[in-house]
């Protein structure tokens, strides 16, 4: 009888462990589901964005069809900002109402350089779990908690539409799990209800003063060792993309763009030959929840940006050196 009781207890524990394992696997699967839904589904809605004392109402139209992905994001709060994205690149209508920044020289690669094993990466750096269900914008949503294992990345709370995984609400959490920013849809239409007419910009883009980014496109170089690279990288981050342009009279100076990701957060490292004044003091800036670090070293300008804590861009940026010196 004791043996039977012991077996029952063991079986119970086994089922419990199996259930929790399944729950963990499902939760992290939902991150992947979210990514696919955000990219592949057509949706259109209004959302509020809250950061510090700032509240913005914005509207997004995202259409994915036989013409590819087309996207328009526009501020409804009077700022006038607008962003358009399609196969030809990104155009950012700046809030001054008179200029548009484009990045026409860069075309996204047709295929991802690193076919996603993002889930595997994220599992090393975050604990992912379910945290109940609730209604967001009239839709049943599953809440997913994504808690960082250290202070080199932010955490997230995500409310995903219960069937498709589409993101309905998002919170960025600091290492102490306090919300740094919050985004929430108040109304959203999906699939055939989306009006593609809203993809049209408020004004014809050719009426704006064009501001090219000036960054070279660079070539994909994931198989080439970077010439410059950070010596110190926070745990969990891996090089996921590398674009390179050799210096030349016609192409301008040498340019490298390295992207490090932990599966969710990403950090870009730009190394440029300025072909001129390369003296830049070290500094950190914040753009919303994005941190940026710049410095000059060895005749190069180093710029690091990412949706990560300041400590992360600082660690990476300060350690960028010529790879041969390592």
């Amino acid at each position: 009888m004791r043996r039977l009781a012991a077996l029952t207890v063991c079986a119970g524990f086994g089922m419990l462990l199996a259930a929790s394992a399944r729950a963990g696997e499902l939760a992290i699967d939902w991150l992947d589901r979210m990514s696919v839904a955000m990219n592949q589904m057509s949706y259109q809605g209004t959302f509020v964005y809250h950061q510090e004392d700032r509240m913005e109402t914005m509207r997004i139209t995202h259409v994915s069809d036989e013409n590819g992905v087309r996207e328009r994001l526009v501020s409804l709060s009077g700022g006038g900002g607008e962003m358009l994205r399609d196969a030809n690149g990104v155009s950012w209508v700046l809030g001054d109402g008179s200029s548009v920044m484009t990045d026409g020289s860069f075309q996204r690669p047709l295929f991802p350089l690193m076919p996603s094993e993002q889930e595997g990466l994220a599992a090393h750096s975050y604990e992912v779990g379910f945290a109940g269900k609730s209604l967001v914008a009239g839709h049943l949503a599953r809440k997913i908690k994504v808690e960082p294992r250290d202070h080199y990345r932010f955490g997230y709370a995500l409310w995903l539409e219960a069937h498709s995984g589409l993101l309905l609400k998002w919170e960025l959490l600091d290492p102490d799990r306090k919300p740094l920013a919050r985004l929430m849809f108040t109304e959203i239409r999906l699939g055939s209800e989306v009006d593609p007419g809203e993809l049209k910009p408020a004004r014809e883009l050719n009426r704006y003063q064009a501001v090219e980014t000036g960054l070279p496109a660079g070539g994909s170089a994931i198989s080439v060792e970077p010439r410059w690279a950070p010596v110190k990288i926070p745990p969990g981050f891996k090089l996921t993309a590398h674009r390179f342009q050799d210096g030349g009279e016609d192409d301008g100076g040498e340019y490298e763009h390295l992207v490090y990701s932990d599966g969710l957060a990403a950090v870009s490292v730009y190394i440029e030959d300025p072909a001129g004044d390369a003296d830049r003091p070290e500094r950190i800036e914040r753009h919303g929840t994005t941190h940026a670090f710049t410095k000059s070293t060895g005749g190069r300008i180093v710029t690091v940006v990412g949706d990560v804590p300041a400590a992360t861009v600082l660690m990476i940026g300060k350690s960028v050196e010529p790879a041969t010196v390592q």
Partner: peptide
């Protein structure tokens, strides 16, 4: 910084379906 941010969210964000979420804070 705009060009760097714009490029960053194209390369790092778009492929993971987070381009818009990533870009909203910068725009705001």
């Amino acid at each position: 910084m705009g060009p760097y941010l714009l490029r960053h969210y194209q390369v790092a964000g778009a492929g993971q379906g987070r381009a818009i979420v990533g870009f909203v804070p910068v725009m705001v």
